[in-house]
Amino acid sequence: MDGNSKYPRWVGVVLSLFVPGSAQFLSGRKGGGFLWFVVLSLVPFAGYGVAIVPREASVHAMYAINFILLPLLFITMLCASYRPVRRLRLRGRIGFVAVFLSLTVGTALLRGFLPSSPFRVPAGAMEPTLRGTTTSREKTQGSSMEWFWHGKKQVEFRASASGSVSQLRMSRNDIKFSVGDVPHKLPAYCMGSFWPTQELKEGDVIWSGTVQAGDLILVDRLSYLFRDPRRGDIVVFSTDGISHKQVRPGSVYVKRIVGLPGETIRINPPHLVVDGRTIRKPIPFRTLDYENAGQLATPDDYIELGKHDYLVFGDNTGKNQSLDGRYFGAIPRSCIIGRVNTIYWPFSRIRVVE
């Protein structure tokens, strides 16, 4: 085999960036290449598998595995990939692209089978248990450590053109408008304190302030394979089984289970009443206050659950704070994705969720 039959050493590193272990495999060490591929594919599963245990130590172990061990292994693999790799013919190139695409698609599909998965709390419906994204006009230091530890950062948006503000459209995800003929977009968290002016000049500050990021939580996807959801569990669920004009299909909500199949639920402020009994267990129900609203507008109103239905409320049921089961009624068991067990970011808020 002549010298031109091999790629330069750096090509092996590039190939391994896309498919771990490919440099070793193509240089003749097929066993080593396959081992690297398997290890680097499975380590994230190990990290999220450890995090399924509702302990603060489990979250720290997940950080150690996914953010320390995994990068170290990946760097080691890349260093070992600095080797001559035989040149790929057309069939080999097609095969490499096919493996890369299969790996990309397979990884996306396998995320749905992780024992636990991350989820960001979008709003304040679960306050004070879970913190949603909030904003203020106050300034913060804006350092990277402030963001890492407390989830706070200073944000500023400026106009990228001059002209009149028009075509203002607000949705749950963002605020869209045009300045002159140039489209602009702001995140939804700006909505509460965004006042568009009629005219803007290029460089004008449209919005600035401090963003307090919502909690990142870990969702246990395995527990409900072995047991039914219980009262007091905080769950993440799909809205596909809900028919309500304010609930968008295909979204994911996080709420606390307050009603189980076959029960009749009322609210006698501030207490939850189930089948005529005031609920004080588990522990969160001793301090949570519930307000009448929606289908439970008065203490006499009730919701009766079917044999596969669950009722969910936010922990913050103050006026217009939580779009929950008081408005859209019961959710079917099939919509529940998993149980929330821990907050894993910001770092200062790592804790077990009750």
Rank of each mutant, 00 (worst) to 15 (best):
S22K: 13
V53D: 10
Q154C: 03
V38C: 12
D220Q: 07
F34P: 07
V39K: 08
S171M: 01
R9V: 12
G306C: 11
A46Y: 11
S102T: 09
L260D: 02
V252S: 03
F37I: 05
V312T: 12
G163I: 10
K319S: 14
N4H: 13
G95A: 04
G259M: 06
G12Q: 06
I175G: 03
F148L: 13
K6Q: 09
Q167H: 15
S171Y: 03
N292H: 00
W149M: 07
L296Q: 01
S334W: 05
A108F: 14
I217M: 07
C79L: 15
L73M: 11
T129C: 07
F37P: 10
L109D: 09
H60Y: 04
L218T: 13
Q321D: 10
R221Q: 06
R266H: 15
D220A: 04
F177L: 01
L103K: 13
R172T: 01
A213M: 04
A159K: 01
Y189I: 00
S58A: 12
V39E: 10
A23I: 09
L305P: 15
K30D: 03
T135F: 10
L225F: 05
F328E: 00
R248D: 00
L288W: 12
N268S: 07
I52T: 14
M126G: 02
F285W: 09
L88G: 04
T287H: 12
T133M: 07
R326A: 07
A125I: 02
V97H: 13
D240F: 00
F96L: 04
L40N: 12
F96P: 05
G106K: 12
P84V: 10
L305I: 14
E263H: 12
A57G: 09
F34H: 03
F148S: 07
S193R: 12
T76D: 04
V14L: 15
F25G: 02
G250E: 14
S144E: 04
I234Q: 02
G3V: 14
Y327E: 01
R227Y: 09
V50A: 12
G28C: 05
E156A: 15
D300W: 05
Q198M: 10
H308Y: 15
P332C: 02
N316Q: 02
G318E: 07
N320Q: 15
L272I: 11
D228A: 13
L73K: 08
L296W: 01
K176A: 04
P54W: 04
R131K: 11
F37W: 13
I265W: 06
T140E: 09
K139I: 07
D324L: 05
Q167M: 03
K319R: 12
G92P: 10
S251M: 15
L78W: 05
G92N: 13
S27P: 15
P183G: 01
I303S: 08
L225P: 03
Q321I: 03
S334Q: 14
P115N: 04
K153A: 13
S164P: 00
T342I: 09
V236P: 03
R91L: 09
K139S: 10
Q321K: 11
V353S: 00
V258R: 00
G294F: 10
Q154W: 11
A46L: 15
M1C: 13
F226I: 12
L88Q: 01
I257A: 01
Q154K: 08
L305N: 09
A57M: 06
G325R: 02
K30P: 04
V165K: 01
L15Q: 07
Y82N: 11
G49M: 02
